[in-house]
Amino acid sequence: MVTGHGRIEHIVRVWLPVAFFLVLALFPFYWMAITSIKPNAELYNKNVMPLIVRAPTLKHYVDLLTKSSFLLWTWNTMLVAAVATAISLVLGVMLAYPLARMRFAGAGLIAMTVAAIYLVPQPLLFIPLADVINRLGLGNTLTSVILTYPTMLVPFCAWLLLGYFKTVPKELEEAARIDGASRLQTMRQVFLPLCTPGFISAGIFAFTLSQNEFLYALIFLTKTTVRTVPVGVISELIRGDVFYWGQLMAGALLGSIPVALIYSFFVEHYVAGLTTGSVKG
């Protein structure tokens, strides 16, 4: 394969398609990056090629970081996403484990109900949810979204985990039971530690959904200090009918960095957890 012919074939078979997808996926990011370092005069100039920048500036970044509460929003987003994900995983396990391992009357019904919950459209829920949040006295607190995000995350986590749980061999649990461990002990100390890849994949999925959520955050969080990145950026960098494009793009790039980092650490497990569950399940 080290012959010249092989190398060309390698490029055609491997790099051509991969490059195609890379360009497709990354071009908008290039656009965001280039937009975020263009001075306004260049940004709005339709006569120059839009893919290059002549006089790059960090002004938009400086403005974003000093004149808006972007860092606070990032912190809020991460906190909300992490806690909502943790809650969703715990609740997801509590649903998925019995469904995966136990026989009991009503299991089918529960599984159906949980599956049906994905289908409930968000726009139907937000007014009554606002009422619940308000009665709990949680308006304008991060807790309001920490509590409401799991409504859409728990079913997904339960579903993903259910698939994963079914692939874990039962022998160890059976051995623990024979040795007299209670079901709770068996679950916590024998079973769950075997399921880390499943948690990582469900967790990452939940985390991504939480940090991207827009509607609940828009309605429940109206103070600058409690906003998340998507809502904060949209509310404060769009003023009337004027978009602060450079800052918006800087925000988009900076906003995706934390999650990108998390992904690059976990992507291996993420993929493993997702596939074990579904391929064999």
Binding site: L22, P28, F29, M32, V233, I234, M249, S256, V267
Partner: peptide, 24 residues
């Protein structure tokens, strides 16, 4: 691995913000 991580970027960036880029 790097390619794989890069390819996931569109899925990560908040939709409202990537849509603003597309608008342009």
């Amino acid at each position: 691995n790097l390619v794989r991580a890069l390819l996931l970027l569109p899925f990560i960036v908040p939709t409202v913000l990537s849509t603003v880029a597309w608008l342009w």
